[in-house]
Every structure is written in C-alpha cells, then in structure tokens.
Design a protein around this nucleic acid. Structure first.
Ligand SMILES: Nc1ncnc2c1ncn2[C@@H]1O[C@H](COP(=O)(O)OP(=O)(O)OP(=O)(O)O)[C@@H](O)[C@H]1O
Length: 635
DNA sequence: ACTTGCGTAGTTTTT
DNA sequence: CTACGCAAGT
C-alpha cells in the first residue's frame, strides 16, 4: 500500500478506519483533505465500488481537484465516485429522485440576481415599494429560514404574529415559490432543502439513497449549515460509514448560516464515533505555523489546539506600510515581479484581500508591471451577456420556458418589447400588426433553428452558434470597449463549453448548462485552466488552497477586521480573526502583509489605522520592508 | 421600442 | 465613484 507511505500514524489510522463514523479535527495544513482523498482511494483499491462512495466538498473547484487527483492515481478512464458540492449533490438527488415530490425533470437554477428579481416583482405585486423594503433583506430572511429547514407555511406558523415585516416576508415567500415553480426553477437553498424533504418524507426514496452511498465523506464540515448536516445524516443513516473533516478555527461562513454544531455534536449524533486529531502541519514554515498559532489563540470561543511542524523556521514575515492603496498595489506587484524573476512560478503566488473592491488597484498595478494574473470573484456567470447566452441555450433545449424567452428576445433588442410580448403570452397572436408579427416569426425561426442544431452539435459549437444566430455577435461587434469585453466574455463561455464536447447533442449541452448554473463565482479558476498567472482573490475564496508566497493586503482596522454596521457582538471579531488565520495559513514559505495609511472608499479618502491583528504577531518574526518614507514601527 | 441622461443609493465575505 | 433605476426624448 504505497499510498500510505509518508503519512503519519494518525493520518494512516484515519485512512484505514473505513467502517463506522469518524471525524478528523485538525488545524490548517495538517493533511485533512489529503487524508480524505487517500481514504477514498483506499476504499476503491480494496474493492468498494465507486458508485457506493460519495464525497462532498465546499467548492466546485475543490471537487474538481479531488476528482483530478483520484483520476491521476487510478489511471485514465477508471470510474470515479460522485464528488460534488452540497449543491451539486442536491441537484443530482433532485434529478434522479425528485419525481416523488413533483420535481420537473429539467429545471433551472436561480442565482441571487434571479431570486432578487423575483422578490422585487413580488413586492410590487403586493404594493410595497422595493425602495422602502430592500428585496435583498427579504431574500436574506427567506434564505436563512430555508437554511433552518422551514417552508413558507412553517415560517408563517412561527413568525406571522411577529409583525409587519414577518408577514410581508411570508407573503413574498409564497409568491416567490409560485414564481419559481412556474418557471421550473430552484434557488440555491432549494437544492439542499428539497432533497432533505424528499428523504424525510419518502421512505422509498430514502431506502434507495441509503443503499446507494455506503461511504460518505465531507470536507470542511465546520462550514456546513444545519440543513446540510441533516442531509448528510439522512444519507448516512443506514450504513453509518460517515467521515467528516474540519477545523473549527476555519469557520468563516457563519454569516451564511454555517454552524460548527454539526462538527461539535458529531459524537452525540454518532455515539460510537471515533475522533482523530491531527496536529502536525506539513504545509508552512515554522515561523508561519508559530504566528498562526498565536493569532488564533486570541479567540476565546474555541478549544485549545496548537499545530506543530518539523519544517524549519524559514523566512520572517514581511510587513509593508504603504501611503495609499495605489502604492500598496504597486509595491505588491513589484515584489511579485521580483519573485518571478528569481524563479518563482506564477501559480505559486497569491494576492489576497478581504473585500473584492480592493482588487481593482492590484489589477492595475499588475498590468502596469506586466505580471500576468488571474482574478477570481468577477461574477462571470452573473454578467448580463453571459446570462443572455445561457438563456438562449436553455430556450433552444426547452422552447417553452417563458423567463428565458423574455430574456432572449431582448438580447440583443430586436424590436419586440413589452407590449408585443404581453400579447404573445396572452395568446393573442392574431392581434399583432404585420410588422410585429414578422419580427416575432423571425425570432421564432431562430429559436427553432437552434433547437434543431442542439440535437447534434457539440456544446462548444452550439454556444458559438447561439452567439452568432442570436445576433449578439453582430450587436457587440461594432461597439466600443465595453461591447468588446462582452464579446470576449461570451466567447469565453464557448471556450468553457469545450470541456463538455465529449458528449454532443442535448445531453452534453445540458451537462454544460447544469454546471454553469452552479459554477458561479469563485470557481473561475476552472474557467481558464491554461491561463497562467498570479492569483488574486478574497481570503474566503482561498480556503483550502495553498501557495508558496502569499500577500495579504489591506491589513487595516475596519477593513480587516472588517466592520459592518455597528450592531454586532464580539462574535464577528472572532470570525474575522479566523479569517485572518485562514489567510496566514495559506502560505507555505513566504507571508507578506501590507497595509495603506490612506484608502479611498466611495471617492473619499479615509485615514486608515494598521489592523489590530498585526499586534497579535510576535515582532521577532517580522521584517519591515523598505518604506518610501521614514520607517515607522507599528508593533 | 430603444437610447440617453440624470439622480440616488450603496458594499463585506459566496454556494 | 459607479452602477443602476427611472424619466423624458427620438
Ligand atoms: N504526511 C504528510 N507528509 C508530507 N506532506 C503532507 C502530509 N500530509 C499532508 N501533507 C501536505 O500538506 C499540505 C496540506 O494538506 P491538506 O491541504 O490536505 O491540509 P488540510 O488540513 O486540508 O488544510 P486546510 O485545513 O488548510 O485546508 C499538502 O501540500 C499536503 O500534500
């Protein structure tokens, strides 16, 4: 068993204890993910059929990486187990067993923008001004309640007496559900909530699913919410071979409903559970491990846990004080360039930040210095032009989709507007004037032609066809810089689709669509796998990753730790510190912290103070980088 | 039906 | 500052 070589005793124990419930609690860089992957490999090698194995990861990217690693170990063409995010798993369950609760065979998935639009319309229907009551607030409330397993009715029972806002939420929710049902769509929360309901209420489905997954693995278990925990427990109910790994110090999604209770109550849910603790950090230098330990020790709300490492102390941590955000960015870019000149690989460098808006200055500086980079969090799949193309594709596969038709008909504008569309929906086709009717028929001819092409085209050729036939290509071609960028984006979508070209026709295109719907946001690393560059992303997006050199920028009070509105208790400060702990522990060899004294937010300049987190670092581990002005001591 | 121009509101973090 | 919603013009 060569794959066990190099693992320490407890890692090995975790890999080999395949039967019964087991949790692995361990700090950053202790090999949790590696243990999980090795364990799956071990199961397969010892004869467990892949279809009986399930692994749930936090991001699509993590799922992809795990699949790739397993594929490399198992050899080309070997069958792989289901490795998916919770939402991906939910989608599979609904697709395969959802008929028991009336789930349509083909459904689309609404992202936050789609959902907000629905909430807004619902508010208008009710007669409430969306400016008085922000749709996002209502949506947040619905989403949170769904995460606790409530339905609109359940919410009504529990909260209806609480006043206007709760009644309004309930009213919106009911309409929201109706709209999504009509449009054959689910939102992200539904992808968890509905499978749970499906399993809880349908014994036959439960029996089938229980028999399907004999071995269940969950990575990053500390950041799952209540409903996700319930889903896992339902799946594992029969065979009870459930393996979860996590680090409560890396809980950074409580704002989204994540609760460490799932991890903490694991041995109550499974009294026979074994718990393995890993303390050895294999990732980072001694200095980084030591600093990380000190940082997280400042949190009160935790169990004492320290990482140890055999790695040499390595280099000190670098701290740089810039005058402004531009100087900070420019310095980071120059340092990155220096590192690359000295032989560092582009993908070994990451530049992290707390909030997305900080990326702009960094991007400009990297451009200036000619350092190639990849930026995550651009919300590629939420861009209008991308959503337009996706709507066209869905429409071609299923021409009865009203929402997609409305979208496609206006992308690009083709002389068909609200009035004409309204008549069409009402079935008053004859009421159209000749001019309008010709336009409608032209549009329908395009849809029909695309629908036919979809029968046999490969996903990527089909996407290109859609871009062309829809008229988007033409509409963007003549335009300015913005249009040029839009054109590039839709072409990138076509490039992305290439990955699905192995299966042509409806099946391949549908697979592409399904992944695109869940691939939102940070999985964009996947988008352009061949494009090399330094990685720019938020600390949240960096969870689970590792880099040789890590820059953490914007180390300023109010920014990191981030201060929202004043109404928060001390819990948030602790989550911010956990976030900082995550940031620091991404680095293998070199950690660089930077901050700016002045930062422009909304066009106004603000005087910034260095982050209080910097005080938590032992000065003996810090080296001050050359500042352009007089050196100042901050610690 | 669609484009243009003004006013206002707003930002953590993301599946 | 900019992105978006909304009102008036073409
Ligand atoms: N026994 C070992 N010997 C050598 N290297 C190891 C060992 N175990 C893990 N590693 C390496 O340590 C690094 C961290 O492992 P991994 O990403 O699995 O840790 P993790 O606990 O999941 O971290 P995090 O909580 O930060 O996501 C990886 O590069 C991995 O290959």
């Amino acid at each position: 068993m060569r794959y066990l070589e190099g693992m320490n005793d407890r890692q090995r124990e975790a890999v080999l204890a395949t039967d019964g419930p087991l949790s692995v609690l361990a700090g950053a860089g202790s090999g949790k993910t590696r243990v999980l992957t090795t364990r799956i490999y071990h199961l397969i090698r010892t004869g467990v059929p892949t279809e009986h194995i399930l692994a749930v990861t936090f991001t699509n990217k993590a799922a992809r990486e795990m699949r790739e690693r397993l594929a490399a170990q198992l050899g080309e063409g070997a069958p792989l187990p289901l490795i998916a995010t919770f939402h991906g798993l939910g989608r599979v369950l609904l697709e395969e067993y959802g008929s028991a609760i009336g789930t349509p065979r083909y459904f689309s998935i609404f992202d936050r923008g789609d959902s907000e639009r629905v909430v807004k319309n619902a508010l208008k229907e009710i007669g409430v001004d969306p400016k008085e009551v922000p749709p996002r607030a209502i949506l947040a409330r619905i989403s949170k309640a769904k995460g606790e397993g409530l339905t609109a009715e359940g919410f009504h029972e529990r909260h209806a007496h609480e006043g206007f806002r709760a009644r309004l939420t309930n009213d919106v929710w009911t309409r929201y559900d109706r709209t999504l049902a009509r449009e054959k769509a689910f939102d992200f929360d539904d992808l968890i909530a509905l499978p749970v309901r499906l399993l809880e209420e349908h014994a036959d489905v439960r029996a089938a699913v229980e028999e399907r997954f004999h071995y269940i693995h969950v990575d990053e278990y500390q950041d799952t919410n209540e409903l996700q925990g319930r889903l896992v427990n339902l799946l594992a109910a029969k065979h009870r071979n459930i393996f979860v790994v996590g680090d409560i110090d890396q809980t950074i999604y409580t704002w989204r409903g994540a609760t460490i209770d799932n991890l903490l109550s694991f041995d109550r849910t499974y009294p026979d559970a074994k718990t393995i603790i890993l303390e050895h950090n294999y990732r980072s230098s001694g200095t980084i491990v030591s600093v990380a330990n000190t940082i997280i020790a400042h949190n009160k709300n935790r169990k004492e846990k320290r990482s140890v490492t055999d790695n040499p102390p390595g280099e000190p941590i670098t701290l740089y004080a810039a005058t402004g955000a531009e100087q900070e960015a420019s310095w980071v870019a120059k340092e990155a360039k220096k590192a690359i000149a000295q032989g560092a690989a582009l993908e070994d460098i990451a530049i992290l930040f707390r909030t997305n808006f900080q990326s702009r200055a960094l991007e400009e500086a990297l451009l200036q210095e000619g350092v190639p980079y990849r930026l995550l969090g651009t919300r590629f799949f939420e861009r209008k032009e991308v959503k337009d193309v996706l709507a066209w594709i869905r429409l071609a596969l299923l021409p009865s989709r009203e929402a997609d038709r409305m979208r496609a008909v206006q992308a690009p504008p083709r002389g068909i507007g609200k009035v004409t569309l309204g008549k069409l929906v009402a079935g008053e086709r004859r009421a159209l004037r000749a001019g309008e009717r010709a336009k409608v028929e032209a549009f329908e001819a395009i849809v029909a032609a695309l629908a036919e092409a979809a029968e046999s085209a490969t996903p990527s050729t089909f996407v290109r066809l859609v871009i062309d036939k829809s008229g988007l290509e033409h509409a963007f071609a003549g335009g300015g810089e913005d249009d040029h960028e839009r054109l590039e984006n839709v072409h990138e979508l076509a490039t992305l689709a290439t990955r699905y070209d192995a299966v042509a026709g409806h099946e391949g295109i549908a697979a592409f669509l399904a992944d695109a719907a869940l691939a939102s946001d940070q999985d964009e690393l996947d988008r352009t796998p061949d494009a090399r560059g330094v990685t720019l992303m938020t600390v949240h997006a960096a969870k689970g990753l590792e880099f040789d050199t890590v820059f953490v920028t914007g180390m300023e009070e109010g920014l990191f730790p981030h201060e929202g509105m004043g109404d928060d208790e001390n819990r948030d400060e602790e989550e911010e510190r956990r976030l900082f702990y995550v940031a620091v522990t991404r680095a293998k060899r070199q950690l660089v912290l930077t901050f700016a004294r002045v930062r422009r937010i909304y066009g106004a300049d603000y005087l910034q103070e260095p982050s209080s987190f910097l005080h938590d670092i032992d000065a003996a581990h810090v080296r001050y980088a050359q500042t352009e002005e007089e050196p100042t001591v901050y610690l």
